[in-house]
Design a protein around this nucleic acid. Structure first.
Length: 429
RNA sequence: GUGGGCGUAGCUCAAUGGUAGAGCACUUGACUGUGGCUCAAGGGGUUGGGGGUUCGAAUCCCCUCGCUCACCCCA
C-alpha cells in the first residue's frame, strides 16, 4: 500500500459513520434541550492563543502541538484544545452582548490535534464534543455541564461510567496548597520516582496523580487540596456536591484529579470508563474562572467539558452495546433486458426526485444477483421490471422483508412506495 | 522521547526449512424471471519491503518500513 493515513488518525467508513451520525444527533438534541447553541470555529488558531491559555509548562504546549507558519509568517496551530478557541470566539463575536453577567452556553463538535504517541484510545486527531458555559459562577452551572455529559453517556448506552470530582481551588487558596505540598514532600524526595523529583520543582501538583505505586503511598499521606480550600471555594464545592445529589448524579471524590491544563480553577472532574485500555478517561473538564480575562476579556467565570467521541465509541463497542439494526429503506430497481434497463433508469430518477432512497444495479447482473444485492443493502423493496411488466405498464413490487410481491401500475407506483395518498406520477410530472 | 508484541487473501487466522491453506466475505451456478437456508465451483497472495544463509525460506540471520500495546500525558 503506497499511501497510508498518518499515524494516530482514523478513517470513518460508511458503516462506522452510522454510529457517528447517531452520536452527533443525540448530542445535538441534548444540547438543544439544555439550551446550548452551536459554535463552529476554525480548525487552526493563532499559536499564542493556546500557549497563553493552556500554559507554557503543560505537555500540550511543550511537545504536542501541530504548529506551522503560513505564507504570511504567522505562527498557527491546529486546534489543540477546545476551550481556548471557544472563549476567543465568545469575545471576538461579542456573544455576551455588553452584559458580562449574561450566561452564554455553547457547544461544539470539533477535531482536536495533539502530537502524542498513538495507542489504544489515543489519537493524534480525535474528536471532542465540547460544552462551555461562560458568564456564571453558579455551582448549578457546573452541575448542568456534568449532567449533560451523564445524559450523553446514558443515551450512548454506556455502563459503569464513574464521575471523579475534585476542587483545585482558586488563585487565593491554590498557592497555599502548593506550598503545603512542597513542605510535606521536602523530606520525602528520596522515596519518590525521578519524575516526581523533577515535578517537585516544576509542577508540584502533578506529583499527586503520579501512577507510580511507591509515589502513591507517599502521596496518600500528603495534604489534600479539598482540606485547604478558601471559604469561597469551599462553599462553591459544597454546592456542586449538593446539586449533584439533588439531581441524582453519583460521584466519587478523588483528590488526585489534577487537570493537565493550567487554566482550571475550583471544580475539576473526569469521567472514567474502565475496559478500553490505559486511556480510560472519556470526558473531562472543570471551571476556568480566570481564562476569559487572561485572553483579554473582562473577568468572567466559566465552566466546560470535553468529551472524547472516539473513546465513547470504543467503550460502546467494547461493552457490546446493541447496534440498532439498520432499518430497511427505499427501493432497488431490478431490471431484465435492455428496454427494461432504460425504463429502470428513469424510474430510479423519478423516485430519487421524490425523496425515495433508490438505486439500480449497474452491473446488469442476473435477477438473482440483483435481489441478493437488494437484501444485502437493506432495501425495503425491489421494483422488478422485465419485458412482461414493460408491456403491461406495471412494476412487480417485492417486499424484501416478507417476500410478498404484487403488481402495481406505473401511475400508482409512487403512491404505493411512499405511502402518500393522492400523489401520483402524472401529477408531479 | 523510552520499552514490549506483531506483520500471510477484503476480514479473522493456520502452515517450525520441502508445491502457501481454512473459515467468513465476494462472484457464478444448482433455481435459463425471484434474496435470506443448503450444496458446488470460482476469483483473489510479490507471505510489509530489501539483502543474506541454503539445493530449497512465510519459516533462520541482518537491515528497513509499518502497525499495535504500555510508560508519560490526555479525551
Amino acid at each position: 500500500m503506497k499511501y497510508r493515513r498518518p499515524p494516530g488518525t482514523n478513517d470513518v467508513t460508511p458503516q462506522q459513520a452510522i454510529q457517528w451520525q447517531q452520536m452527533e444527533a443525540v448530542f445535538a438534541d441534548l444540547c438543544r434541550r439544555h439550551c446550548f447553541g452551536e459554535l463552529r470555529t476554525p480548525i487552526f488558531e493563532d499559536t499564542d492563543l493556546f500557549i497563553r491559555s493552556v500554559g507554557h509548562g503543560t505537555d500540550i504546549v511543550s511537545k504536542e502541538m501541530y504548529t506551522f507558519e503560513d505564507r504570511g509568517g504567522r505562527s498557527l496551530t491546529l486546534r489543540a484544545e477546545g476551550t481556548a478557541p471557544a472563549v476567543r470566539a465568545y469575545l471576538e463575536n461579542h456573544l455576551a452582548q455588553q452584559d458580562p453577567q449574561r450566561l452564554v452556553k455553547l457547544y461544539y463538535v470539533a477535531p482536536i490535534f495533539r502530537y502524542d504517541r498513538p495507542q489504544a484510545g489515543r489519537y493524534r486527531q480525535h474528536t471532542q464534543f465540547g460544552l462551555e458555559a461562560i458568564g456564571s459562577d453558579c455551582p448549578a452551572v457546573d452541575v448542568e455541564i456534568i449532567q449533560t455529559a451523564v445524559e450523553l453517556y446514558q443515551a450512548a448506552g454506556l455502563r459503569d461510567v464513574v464521575l471523579k470530582l475534585n476542587s483545585v481551588g482558586c488563585p487565593q487558596c491554590a498557592p497555599g496548597y502548593v506550598q503545603a505540598l512542597r513542605d510535606f514532600m521536602a523530606d520525602k524526595l528520596d522515596q519518590v520516582c525521578d519524575d516526581c523529583r523533577r515535578r517537585y520543582d516544576e509542577n508540584p501538583l502533578r506529583m499527586i496523580d503520579c501512577k507510580n505505586a511507591q509515589c502513591r503511598i507517599v502521596v496518600e499521606q500528603a495534604p489534600k487540596m479539598t482540606d485547604l480550600l478558601c471559604e469561597e471555594c469551599e462553599d462553591h464545592f459544597g454546592h456542586v456536591r449538593r446539586y449533584l445529589e439533588l439531581l441524582g448524579i453519583s460521584y466519587d471524590l478523588d483528590p488526585y484529579i489534577v487537570r493537565g491544563l493550567d487554566y482550571y480553577t475550583r471544580t475539576a472532574f473526569e469521567f472514567v470508563a474502565a475496559s478500553i485500555g490505559a486511556q480510560s478517561s472519556i470526558g473531562g473538564g472543570g471551571r476556568y474562572d480566570g481564562l476569559v480575562k487572561q485572553i483579554g476579556g473582562r473577568s468572567t467565570p466559566a465552566v466546560g467539558i470535553g468529551i472524547g467521541v472516539e473513546r465513547v465509541l470504543l467503550v460502546r463497542e467494547q461493552q457490546g452495546v446493541a447496534q440498532t439494526e439498520q432499518p430497511r429503506d427505499g427501493c432497488l430497481v431490478v431490471t431484465l433486458g435492455d428496454a427494461a434497463w432504460e425504463a429502470g433508469l428513469k424510474l430510479a430518477t423519478m423516485l430519487r426526485g421524490h425523496g425515495v432512497r433508490a438505486d439500480v444495479d449497474y452491473r446488469r447482473r442476473s435477477m438473482r444477483a440483483q435481489l441478493r444485492h437488494a437484501d444485502g443493502e437493506r432495501f425495503a423493496r425491489a421494483l422488478i421490471i422485465g419485458d412482461q411488466e414493460l408491456e403491461q405498464g406495471i412494476v412487480a413490487v417485492r417486499d424484501m422483508e416478507t417476500g410478498e410481491q404484487q403488481e402495481v401500475t406505473q401511475d400508482r407506483l409512487l403512491q404505493f412506495v411512499t405511502g402518500v395518498p393522492g400523489q401520483c406520477e402524472k401529477q408531479v410530472d
